[in-house]
């Protein structure tokens, strides 16, 4: 039996609850994590958008701690996999084992791997072989894993947070493009500023333990995910998202010069989906019921930076993808109606 459609007042009430819950979750994480406000915001946006996050940063910046804290703030199961070169797909997904029942009969029983958790921390994901990395693919995209021809559903919400270290690249296996594309956002964790560093010292070198409360449950997260998809987006903002994604393609006839010169492959349509979904979450978290141009601009960097593959010239000249995306946004705004002044037309 179909449930009656919620009324506008109910949805508005839920939206207000979401704003409150989002703020509480954010403040719980910030009890432990100092600084990195934008990273925390983007991780939460990824959680409510239903995507997965790849976090990149040098060791010791608190990537793993951030994810652990988030998991502690949510009433969800958490598992962690430390990726190493000898890790096998079975170590992640699980395997069939022979078990003996009470009557002495032997049979295969599927032993679930650590992927069967709500929040999965894939630490140093680029240390494992591509075969093992790819074991995550089906789970990330479909929410299920298949072992010996049997599909096993993963718990919902299923949220993968992978970390990788950009400096110790020797002996690592960079993620293939197909898997990179599965991540909604790629976040870069920067080194903390002086005040933040002082605060980190203060917080971590004392006896006092900070307790993190669980402020949200799994069903609540799933409910908010549905609510977020109802946020309307105006056509000129949606057009701008499409223009931004198309502007990353050197083959596009209106592609900016920088794209033609430095980009080998542009973003997939998943990039546009990530842009709009992220913008919707950001809008609702901000207490708005619509997506604005600012939301879209704020989501462009994390949603597109891992989806743009530079060509040889771009690599050789050390082109920064973030800088490239910033220029592409300007170019896309001048191409679309969103950036034009209607006054004299």
């Amino acid at each position: 039996m179909d449930q009656p459609a919620p009324s506008a007042e109910t949805q508005a009430q839920r939206a207000r609850e979401f704003v409150t819950a989002h703020r509480m979750l954010r403040s719980e994480v910030q009890k432990i994590i100092v600084g990195h406000d934008d990273v925390i915001d983007h991780v939460l946006i990824g959680l409510f958008a239903g995507g997965h996050i790849l976090i990149e940063g040098v060791p010791g910046l608190g990537k793993t701690l951030l994810i652990r804290t988030l998991a502690s703030s949510l009433d969800l199961s958490f598992s962690r996999i430390q990726f190493t070169p000898d890790l096998m797909p079975g170590d992640i997904i699980g395997t069939n084992m022979i078990v003996e029942d009470a009557e002495g009969r032997k049979r295969f029983q599927f032993q679930r791997g650590p992927i069967f958790g709500h929040i999965l921390l894939a630490d140093e994901v680029n240390r494992a072989t591509p075969k093992t990395q790819s074991a995550l693919l089906e789970g990330m995209q479909e929410g299920s894993v298949t072992v010996s021809g049997t599909a096993h559903m993963l718990p919902a919400p299923f949220f993968v947070l992978a970390t990788q270290n950009p400096i110790e690249m020797e002996g690592t296996y960079p993620l293939p493009e197909a898997q990179l594309d599965r991540f909604l956002f790629k976040l870069r964790v920067k080194y903390p500023a002086l005040e933040e560093l002082n605060e980190i010292i203060n917080r971590t070198t004392r006896v006092r333990e900070v307790a993190v409360e669980r402020v949200m449950t799994g069903p609540e997260v799933m409910g908010y995910r549905e609510l977020i998809r109802e946020v309307p987006i105006a056509s000129h903002i949606r057009d701008l998202a499409s223009f931004i994604v198309l502007a990353t393609h050197p083959q596009w006839e209106r592609a900016p010069e920088m794209t033609r010169r430095f980009v080998r492959y542009g973003s997939s349509p998943r990039g546009a989906q990530a842009l709009v979904l992220g913008a919707k979450v950001r809008a609702l978290a901000d207490g708005r019921y619509n997506v604005s141009l600012d939301d879209l601009r704020a989501m462009a960097l994390p949603a597109l930076r891992h989806r743009i593959i530079l060509n040889f010239e771009g690599e050789a000249e050390g082109v920064d993808t973030d800088h490239l995306i910033a220029e592409l946004i300007e170019a896309a705004e001048s191409l679309s109606a969103a950036g034009k002044d209607a006054f004299l037309r």
């Binding site: 309307p232 619509n290 604005s292």
Partner: peptide
């Protein structure tokens, strides 16, 4: 923040969601 443009576009659409009404209000 693009509220007016979104409202005018979505207020008349048949596939509008309950959130659109909240947005218009």
């Amino acid at each position: 923040q693009d509220r007016v443009a979104t409202c005018l576009e979505w207020a008349e659409r048949p596939d509008r969601t309950p959130l659109v009404e909240a947005l218009v209000a």
